[in-house]
Design a protein around this nucleic acid. Structure first.
Lengths: 178, 178
DNA sequence: CTGATCTCAGGCTAACTGAGATTA
DNA sequence: CTAATCTCAGTTCGCCTGAGATCA
């Protein structure tokens, strides 16, 4: 994208106004919420992917590496990765294909279940995810462009939303260490 | 996606804990924020696209129709649509290609600028966007799965975020009619 | 001429459907 | 047998780069 010029006003606020003028008042906030989240995600994804690009990683591939690097033994069955990352099984296949081609993960037979395949981070994969994480932390996550108290509000609200959408059971507030 | 089973705990809260344990405390909230927004967008997009599917629309195509239906004369130059929807010019070409193939928009010459092409909603396009909007309102927007006061908080916080990211100039709080 | 506007060609990612092989 | 797990083939979508035609 050719580094867009800012619009003179907020397009979502304008759409919100249109909704109310058309008698859709009860849906106006919902429309604005969904549209806002879509656009915020687009901004954040662009930022994250630009940082990951030098590492040859997409956000999906980064998340796979991160998940494996935190897993016991650095490995998980494909189906477990699919469930944890909420990505389609065939997408897991293609993500792992690409990471394997780059030597960042390897496939291994499951010790007891002959149907399952394990994915395992390699040492190159660990090095790659560590460097990528350092870059993301300094370039994206330390300053997201949002006030800290706003960030924690959004995190908390979206945790309830995700739980109610069926992502996980309980609790919304995680047991903090200590 | 085969209607996933809920996880027993919040994977983002777990990642947040990992970040803190690894000495990345200053980046932990940023990581959780970005990941939460990504996942919320995924949930909302899936919901919206399942409602739009019977109409043969994606969210991107729906937004194009919505934009045109609110525009004076129901038409805009391609470049204006690209700026308003924050999509790449070549993506506008392909979105309009598809909508035109379905008879929902048509291309027309710009009256004064020979370089520019206007996109215009057809009456079929207006009918389609009206029906799709009614379906979205009742099935997605009236109840987004979020408490109303949380929704307005998120809308407000993300408006500031979008403005600071360069989406638009001012003001964050739009001039309300009356 | 420069710069804006749009289209096309082509690569890449990822989602999805549907089918099939293998094994619990 | 049924159900789970994974892969493959093929489609669609949208993002992106780079190049070219057209016109202000």
């Amino acid at each position: 994208m050719p580094s867009a010029t800012p619009l003179p006003w907020d397009p979502i606020a304008e759409a919100h106004r249109h909704w109310k003028e058309h008698g859709w008042s009860t849906a106006a906030d919902g429309m604005a919420l969904v549209t806002s989240v879509m656009r915020a995600q687009q901004i954040m994804l662009a930022s994250v992917e630009s940082v990951l690009k030098p590492f040859g990683l997409t956000f999906a591939r980064y998340e796979m590496l991160r998940l494996l690097s935190f897993a016991r033994d650095g490995s998980l069955p494909m189906a477990a990765a699919s469930a944890r990352l909420q990505v389609h099984p065939t997408s897991v296949t293609s993500i792992v294909d690409r990471l394997e081609r780059d030597g960042l993960v390897r496939r291994a037979a499951h010790p007891t279940d002959g149907r399952a395949t394990l994915v395992e981070v390699t040492s190159a994969g660990r090095a790659s995810v560590d460097e990528a994480t350092a870059a993301l932390n300094t370039q994206c996550f330390v300053d997201t462009g949002m006030a800290p108290e706003d960030a924690t509000d959004v995190i908390r609200i979206l945790a309830t939303f995700r739980r109610d959408a069926g992502d996980f059971i309980e609790p919304v507030a995680p047991p903090e260490p200590l």
